[in-house]
């Protein structure tokens, strides 16, 4: 099996994407900039990024929802690896960069307009780049792992991938919650409180050193993203239309 990586094939696929979606992309990022302009200083970047990003990633392989489009996609002379790398570049690097640019422009425009209209001298608040909770690096890692989940979802569910991926995540989370509850009941007995149990974040874990989780979480998220990309690769390789 030839799964070599030819950068030209990746560039060709990117060119093909932008040629096909040029107008949609311009329109989309204009709307996103407008939203960030209106919602500046609200710290809503994470919320907007998560919702819009999941829709983008979950529609990455929408071609498989329509047989002729699926045929067209699979017949593109590029390796599975090149196709997955292109998808990852689009739904993580490109999407995140564009979101940050839209946020930057929107925040700047919104704050300037607000100051002019109210004749105030408020400072521009860059919630993404400042503050402990909104460190851009940790946001990026979380975003990459989330996008990897939705990209896999779009490969598994050919019809209504957004809805089905979200429902699957809810189902998996609830299942983990229930399993964890019973495991804790067995180990710690009846003193386990149902409300205190969330998958992987129970009171027993919460007692642990906070810095440990600060280091562990991005590592876990990065590993998760890589694992999901590999799973996506195999899913794409076995895809039939």
């Amino acid at each position: 099996m030839n799964q070599s990586i030819n950068p030209n094939k990746i560039l060709l696929q990117l060119k093909q994407y932008f040629l096909e979606n040029q107008e949609k992309e311009i329109m989309y990022w204009s709307i996103m900039t407008l939203i960030f302009t209106l919602m500046h200083q609200d710290g809503t970047f994470l919320f907007i990024l998560s919702i819009s990003g999941l829709i983008f990633a979950a529609r990455q392989f929408k071609a498989f929802g329509h047989t002729p489009s699926g045929i067209h996609y699979l017949m593109i002379p590029a390796t599975q690896t090149e196709k997955i790398i292109t998808a990852v570049l689009l739904n993580t690097v490109y999407y995140f960069t564009m979101s940050v640019v839209a946020y930057g422009i929107g925040n700047l425009l919104g704050s300037t307009l607000f100051n002019n209209m109210m004749s105030s001298q408020s400072e521009i608040y860059w919630s993404l780049f400042t503050g402990e909770r909104h460190q851009i690096w940790s946001v990026l890692i979380s975003f990459v792992s989330t996008q990897a989940i939705y990209m896999l979802g779009s490969l598994i569910f050919t019809k209504h991938p957004v809805r089905k991926t979200i429902l699957t995540i809810i189902a998996v989370t609830v299942s983990l919650y229930i399993i964890e509850y019973f495991v804790f009941q067995l180990v710690f007995g009846n003193e386990t409180k149902l409300t205190n149990l969330l998958p992987f974040f129970s009171e027993k874990f919460a007692d642990a050193d906070d810095s440990f989780f600060k280091v562990l979480t991005p590592i876990m998220e990065s590993v998760l993203a890589v694992v999901l990309w590999i799973v996506s690769y195999f899913r794409l390789a076995e895809k039939e239309v």
Binding site: M1, N2, K9, L19, P68, M75, I76, P77, T79, A237
Partner: peptide, 26 residues
């Protein structure tokens, strides 16, 4: 295995066509 060297030597035109808004030139 969908080897790219094989795919670049096959053109498959299905009965129903792929939908695109591209111009012929693009």
């Amino acid at each position: 295995l969908r080897h790219p060297n094989m795919l670049q030597d096959i053109y498959f035109l299905p009965e129903d066509l792929y939908q695109t808004s591209l111009s012929i030139e693009k």
